[in-house]
Amino acid sequence: MSAFLSYLLNGLAVGCAIALIASGLVTIHRVTGVVNFAQGTFAVVAGLCTSSLLGLGFPHGLSELAAVLAAAVAGLLTGLAAIGKRGTTPLASLIVTLGVGVLAYAVEIVLWGDQPRSAPGLAGSVTVAGAHIQTQHLLVIGVTAATFVLLALFFGRTYLGKALTACASNPYAARVVGIDVRRMGLLAFALGGLLGGIAGVLVTPLRPISFDTDVTLIVNGFAAAVFGALTRPVIALFGALLLGVAETMAAGYGYGSHQLEVALGLMIIVMIVQAGRRSAISEETV
């Protein structure tokens, strides 16, 4: 029972990181229609930055904040590359984000080498109902919850957030009222970078991160985002938590080497189900 509980909480922590990646994907996709395959890169950049800054003797808090901002800048640059030119189709932009991800490998290897790096997080653990839970896991869960609340408030309550939603809802109408849709798209990319950065800063103390960790992150994040049809953040959040728990359980009960396969398998099932549902609808309307 206590093993189960600690797997569950560890799984939730992993799921939270996936959820942050997924929310970045969803934010960018909603506003720009682009699937951003460089999303995992933002987390890697933030993780490697934290590791370096802490190594240079900068204090906690400042290091993590600077790393998250660096990821936001990476998001903005990716946005400029992907949608900076007028009239780029979402598919072309998707290819550009793949290119950005590969380019980032080169930059990361030059700056940080190819060995995994870690960073100290919150030390210690607490015992709840006989289960040992690392404090860092609780931090991940807490920060993710706070981030999602802030994100919901931003999109639901602020004027800028509503303008972003407006671009997603009807880009032509957004232009009619004078909103610069391209600039809003860049803002979405920066926000996506920020969210990816938070994920990276949170997971680096749990799992050492290297230039190619983005593959694991993007596969999991994409699986969760697809669960929410790339547009619904709350469903993506549940998808991510489910995925995190399923993977941690699989690892805990002895299938540790198959975590990525679990994510890929679930993603393919969800995509097939959704594709089937969509064609059912279009058949009805024909």
Binding site: K162, T165, A166, A168, S169, N170, A173, A174, V176
Partner: peptide, 12 residues
Amino acid sequence: LIPEGRQLFPDL
């Protein structure tokens, strides 16, 4: 401009 076909933000 009041565009052709209203063009509101349907989700808002």
